[in-house]
């Protein structure tokens, strides 16, 4: 399980250099190579997938033609609900008699849960990381615009050692303004599609996509924005245990689909400070800071 403590750190700050030992991971999988393992990890898939699909926009305004650029960083924080901190685990192997118990997920209590069997035998379910939040920080670059469209890119990579390999994040997205077709004035509408990929060596692969309808309205130096969308995410974890060559292979889908987002952007000259809250199965708060050019000046002048 120690591997997953390390993994969480990586997922949180993306580019941290941390010590990582195969043994830590093996201590986890020696217990969780089965259905328990998938249930233990599922909340991570939900939270991380939702984070990946966030912090991608802060206005729906896209010029019809001309230079428009935003470079910044978005920090997303998924709030871990109490319901995602426990699951019903089942004893495995030759523990006798078979029993079920409510035990921690990866975000649950750090206390190991041990249940007693025949003859003073005990089955121990690993504890979690005792987390209420899962943050993720990601750099963003948005460039436009051509025919009312812009392009968003995300990229980060860091090599954390030969045992695990490289942590890598790549994402892209395109948006198209609907103001080209609709007689709207200071109210802006756009549709967007975003794709994200995250990997940790050959062990972790995460993907996410988001399609949404975005709207925004400028008022003085503030832009109110929001979106409704549909999202999808997956988290795949694969590892071969050195002890007996057994393999874990968790392919998990994030428990997220429809989402609604409401937010504010403070236009402080070229400095853009934005925050939004997403209502979905996995709720989260986003905070972003960056430099934007040609994004709102014309809009504010209007």
């Amino acid at each position: 399980m120690r591997f997953f403590a390390t993994l969480i750190v990586l997922l949180c700050i993306s580019l941290s250099a941390v010590n990582l030992r195969a043994q830590d991971f093996e201590d986890f999988i020696s217990k969780y190579t089965d259905a328990n393992g998938k249930a233990y990890m599922q909340p991570l898939a939900d939270a991380f997938g939702a984070n990946l699909n966030s912090g991608l926009y802060h206005s729906a305004y896209i010029k019809d033609q001309g230079f428009q650029l935003y470079l910044g960083i978005s920090v997303m924080n998924a709030f871990i609900p109490e319901s995602n901190k426990t699951f019903l685990g089942n004893t495995q192997g030759f523990f006798n008699p078979e029993q079920s118990a409510t035990v921690p997920t990866i975000f649950g209590s750090s206390q190991v849960v041990a249940i007693e069997g025949d003859g003073e035998t005990y089955y121990a379910f690993p504890g979690g990381l005792d987390l209420d939040n899962l943050p993720l920080a990601v750099p963003n670059l948005t460039v436009g615009s051509l025919l009312g469209s812009d392009l968003t890119l995300r990229w980060a990579a860091y090599d954390i050692g030969e045992e695990v390999g490289k942590v890598q994040l790549f994402g892209w997205g395109v948006r198209h303004s609907l103001n080209r077709y609709l007689p709207l004035e200071s109210f802006h509408l756009a549709v967007g599609y975003y794709m994200q990929q995250f990997s940790v060596g050959d062990v972790v692969d995460a993907d996410g996509w988001l399609a949404n309808l975005q709207a925004s309205y400028p008022w003085r130096f503030i832009t109110f924005y929001g979106a409704v969308g549909y999202e999808n995410s997956t988290l795949d974890i694969r590892y071969t245990y050195e002890g007996d060559d057994s393999t874990i292979d968790f392919d998990m889908a994030g428990n997220n689909s429809l989402r609604a987002t409401l937010g504010l952007t403070f236009n402080l000259g070229p400095v853009k400070l934005h925050t939004d809250y997403t209502l979905a199965n996995q709720q989260l708060l986003t905070l972003g800071l960056g430099l934007g050019f040609g994004e709102t000046v014309k809009m504010l002048e209007e």
Partner: peptide
Amino acid sequence: VLGAVLLAGCEDRTFEYVAT
């Protein structure tokens, strides 16, 4: 806001592990 973001740091935490 910048100060609040930068103040988020690390702490020493004790985690329990299970080796089988």
